[in-house]
Simulated assay, not measured.
Amino acid sequence: MIDDVVVMGAGVIGLTTAVTLAEDGRRVRVWARESGTDTVSAVAGALWWPYRIQPEETAGAWSLASLRIFTRLAERPEETGVRLVPGFMADTAMAGLGPWAAEVPGLRDARADEVPAGYMHGLRARVPLIDMPAHLRYLRGRLEAAGGVVERREAGSTAETGPVVVNCSGLGARELVPDPLVRPVRGQLVIVENPGIDEWFVAADHASAETAYVFPQPYGVVLGGTAEEDSWNREPDPVTARAIIERCARIRPELADAKVLEHRVGLRPARDGGVRLEAERLPTGTLCVHNYGHGGAGVTVAWGCAAAVARLVRT
């Protein structure tokens, strides 16, 4: 059994994978170009849902594995940042989802009286909603408790490590591997004071660069959003921000006058062809396990993917 593992990346995928490996008995070091609070994971609205991720069948299994763990973590929300929150997924039906949907407790088609004006149908569900800054702190603390360490370090290639490296570099895999199939999907958010909202709402058209979602978090309400393919722009756009607030206020009018607290932009690490989760032996002899390309569902599949990585490292 190989004991020493380097995990590249300190976002939710990297830290969750590192925790899983450390608690499996490995000596784990995380190499982080950015700290957890500076990664795209910290920006995420972070509702558990298999959004913009392929391959669908495998992603469904990873998502369900994560759901089981998040449900347990939701018993300690102040510590873990995870809560189970009810909400509405617009213009989506059970029949249009994969087999994973039948295994989500309480997920169902909404009754007509539960559908907001302007929408034809939708789903009701009570699923994990994660306060990402809090959750990333929890993961780092859990990693350190298991003997793992996080080092601020940037690698030039996956071959610079010891016997095993796990590549959770997200968007960085485009240059690190290199993998030209990796590309950004820009997401812009607005954080406002909460005027009394206690349920989440999502209306996401996968064919559109504009989405509408409302996520009540302990620090305010996260309003979104955008899904701009191949945009590297990390600066918030005032015009886009106003449009986001207007879209969300059509669903919850009380948001129109809510005080704006913060603007955020994150670049989702998408990959043409879907997630890459596989092992390869590098010319140096290093075992490299790739775990990147999770698009808009990194939080949703994090624990499931981490378990898959652990199995590959064991073999």
Results as ranks from 00 to 15, higher is better:
Thr315Asn: 09
Leu176Ile: 14
Ala117Thr: 13
Ala249Tyr: 03
Glu278Ala: 13
Ala42Phe: 04
Trp62Glu: 06
His135Ile: 00
Glu254Ser: 13
Thr80Trp: 04
Thr80Asn: 00
Ala243Val: 05
Met1His: 01
Ser169Thr: 14
Ser157Gly: 12
Ala42Thr: 01
Gly224Arg: 11
Asp4His: 09
Asp272Gln: 08
Ala145Lys: 08
Gly285Cys: 04
Gly118Met: 15
Ala306Ile: 08
Val30Asn: 01
Asp257Phe: 01
Val127Met: 12
Asp257Asn: 06
Ile13Asn: 09
Gly298Val: 00
Thr80Val: 00
Gly60Arg: 09
Arg72Glu: 10
Ala308Trp: 02
Asp4Pro: 04
Leu143Tyr: 11
Trp31Asn: 04
Asn167His: 10
Glu278Cys: 03
Glu78Met: 05
Asn194Lys: 07
Arg311Ser: 08
Leu129Phe: 07
Arg174Asp: 02
Leu277Tyr: 02
Pro216Gly: 11
Asp257Arg: 07
Tyr119Ser: 09
Ala308Met: 09
Gly25Ser: 10
Pro216Ala: 12
Gly9Arg: 03
Asp3Lys: 14
Tyr138Trp: 13
Pro195Asn: 14
Thr158Val: 15
Trp49Asp: 01
Thr161Met: 02
Gly273Ser: 07
Glu160Thr: 08
Ser208Arg: 11
Gly220Val: 03
Tyr138Gln: 01
Ala101Arg: 07
Ser208Pro: 10
Tyr213Pro: 13
Ala90Asp: 12
Glu114Met: 13
Val299Arg: 02
Arg276Tyr: 05
Ile53Asp: 08
Phe70Asn: 14
Ala134Arg: 15
Gly45Trp: 00
Thr39Tyr: 00
Leu15Ser: 10
Val28Asp: 01
Asn291His: 06
Thr240Ser: 05
Arg52Trp: 12
Glu229Asp: 05
Val150Tyr: 05
Glu235Pro: 05
Leu139Val: 05
Gly296Asp: 01
Arg153Trp: 01
Val265Trp: 01
Val82Phe: 09
Pro184Arg: 02
Ala249His: 03
Leu107Cys: 14
Leu97Lys: 08
Ala145Trp: 05
Leu176Pro: 08
Phe88Asp: 11
Glu34Leu: 15
Leu277Thr: 05
Asp257Thr: 09
Glu57Gln: 11
Glu246Ser: 07
Leu189Glu: 02
Ala203Ser: 13
Pro236Leu: 02
Glu254Val: 06
Asn167Gln: 08
Val221Gln: 07
Asp113His: 15
Asp237Asn: 12
Pro133Trp: 00
Trp232Tyr: 06
Glu57Phe: 06
Arg111Pro: 07
Arg271Glu: 09
Arg264Tyr: 04
Ala302Ser: 15
Ala227Trp: 06
Arg271Ser: 11
Ala95Leu: 14
Met89Asp: 11
Gly106Ser: 10
Glu79Ala: 07
Ser169Tyr: 00
Phe201Ile: 12
Thr226Leu: 09
Val309Leu: 02
Ala101Phe: 04
Glu78Ala: 13
Arg76Pro: 00
Ala302His: 13
Leu64Arg: 10
Leu129Arg: 08
Trp200Thr: 02
Val185Lys: 01
Asn233Phe: 04
Gly25Arg: 09
Ala306Lys: 10
Pro99Gly: 08
Leu181Ile: 03
Val149Tyr: 10
Arg174Val: 01
Ile197Phe: 11
Glu246Val: 05
His135Ser: 02
Thr284Ser: 15
